[in-house]
Amino acid sequence: MITLLAIAASLALTPAAMPTPPGELPVDPYEVSNSNAGAEPLSDPAVFEAFGGIEGIDRIVDDMVERITVDPRLADIFRASDFVRLRRTLKEQFCYLLGGPCDYTGMPMRSSHADHGITTAEFNALVENLQLAMDAEGVPFRMQNRLLALLAPMQRDIVTR
């Protein structure tokens, strides 16, 4: 009973708090908004199609996350991560940015990467893994670049070291 009250109280105190989805670790509360995705979505439906829609994006993100966990340049950054949450929010973000029928519920780029001490070289290593995952899904190179053009400026928020 006391526990329930405490949870209710904490929920009441946190603005725009989202319940922690199953399998994920709780995070500090933040304002949920599509503007957290870090760029305006594309309006050209050809790009979303070239990515294979939601299913294609899901496969790309799963493949990319698999790759980064074994990439020696990146494994240490993500070893401490909540991979369930990472996959979900990345899928939402890519789907939203590519103009798909999704909302992004993750944190803004700056706060989700704060304290990770990410370098430009590590950012680029992540881009390479994304490129390999997009190749594996058969996304044409020029369509890949439409997404990368939206992600590239996030380097300024993500790289802190």
Partner: peptide
Amino acid sequence: PNRDRVRHH
């Protein structure tokens, strides 16, 4: 031991 979700050096 590292108790954080970020890496340390």
